[in-house]
Every structure is written in C-alpha cells, then in structure tokens.
C-alpha cells in the first residue's frame, strides 16, 4: 500500500465507519474492509477510478467534492479521510468544516508548498515551482489551493480544530531528523489527524 495510506490505515479502529474523500482506485478502503472490517464509502469523480473500485468491491460513490457533503448526516463516521486532495478542491475551508461535521475525526494529507525546493525554485527562477511532488505547471495544475504546513495549521486554529497528530515526511515518506527540526522547510508531505475542540 502507498506509504501515506499505511499511516492512515494505522489510525483506523476495527469496525469503524470510514469516509474516504477522493478515494482514487479504492486501495485504502479495500485494505480497511479486508483487515479491519470497516463500513466505508469512498467518493471520487474519476470514471476510471470508479471502475477500479467496483472491481475491488469498494463502496464507491461518484460524487464531486466541490458539491459538498450535504448528503451525509452529522456524526455518521468515525473517521473522514482525505489524502492528497485538499489542494485541488474549490473550497477547502468549507470542506474541512464538513469533514468534522460528518465525522468525529479526520485525516488530511497534502504536499507542502513551503518545502525548501519550492522556495528555492521560486526565489531562483522567479517561476512557479515544478517538482517531483508537484509536477504540474501553473496553467494546467489541478492543485488550485496549495498551502504550506504553517498555512494549514493557521486555518485549523482559525476553525478551532484540534491537531491530534502531525506527521511530516519527505518525498520517500520517511521521517527524518532534519524534518523534525524544521518541518515547514524540509517536509514534502504533511499528515494531519484532526479532531473537534469540543
């Protein structure tokens, strides 16, 4: 399984109710259904991904995250997951709030725009960063809401969300000491486990 999904899977309790936003080919849910007997749904809008999920027996719902989660009731999930997707939605603020409305806790992972390579690229070339973990050019990128770890944490504070756990990894999904020293500079991907304050 993808290393970041492994991190997520470790957080899920047996028999949990799970919602996976932007579930892709259904790898995570498939794994969780098999090993933790979760009751899970995945949302995705990509036709090919939906076919792959159906072939795995994953409960995939074709739904655009930009249409919100209005069809899900309050507190209907133990965990709402969104891996490497928040940067491509139209309204990340609203979606974050929705995630902690329908779920008691959530996990969000995303690429760090504050990584030193991004900063260096912009500083040295004067052009929008293109890198291994953010390979698109500014005009064709699906990533319309990139942020740094500091940005994201500021939003969590603004929304009164509790950061239960933060893990920061490099592009090989390893946690190194340099990263812990200055995560917003050396971390490629952030993994945030969030909860409600009340």
């Amino acid at each position: 399984m993808r290393p970041d999904l492994e991190l997520v899977a470790n957080l899920i309790q047996t028999d949990a109710r799970v919602l996976d936003l932007g579930c892709g080919d259904g790898e995570l849910l498939h794994n969780l259904q098999q090993h933790k007997s979760v009751i899970g749904y995945g949302l995705d809008k990509d036709a090919e991904n939906i076919g792959l999920c159906l072939a795995k027996g994953v409960n995939v719902i074709e739904q655009d995250l930009d249409e919100g989660l209005g069809n899900f009731q309050d507190d209907s999930f133990d965990m709402v997951i969104m891996t490497e997707t928040i940067q491509s939605v139209h309204n990340p603020l609203l979606l974050l709030q929705e995630m902690l409305r329908v779920g008691r806790e959530c996990v969000v992972t995303f690429p760090n725009f504050g990584h030193w390579r991004c900063r260096l690229h912009l500083a040295a070339s004067g052009k929008m960063p293109v890198s291994a973990h953010l390979p698109h050019r500014w005009y064709d990128t699906p990533n319309i809401h990139l942020c740094t770890f500091n940005d994201f944490e500021a939003l969590c504070a603004h929304l009164n969300m509790l950061i239960l756990q933060r893990r920061v990894v490099n592009r090989h999904h390893n946690e190194r000491s340099l990263i812990n020293l200055a995560p917003n500079l050396f971390g490629s991907y952030g993994f945030y486990h969030l909860g409600r304050t009340t």
Binding site: A47, L54, V58, I61, E62
Partner: peptide, 21 residues
C-alpha cells in the same frame, strides 16, 4: 438515483454509485 444512494448510505448499507456520461 442520488436519492436512493443517499438513503442507502444513511441506512448504513453497502452501496456503490456511478453516473454515466
């Protein structure tokens, strides 16, 4: 179809849904 899907989710049933172009 979405009404059915939403009701199935609310009832906690296993459901997959696709909207075909």
């Amino acid at each position: 179809s979405k009404e059915i899907v939403d009701a199935l989710i609310a009832a906690g049933k296993d459901v997959a849904a696709a909207v075909i172009e």
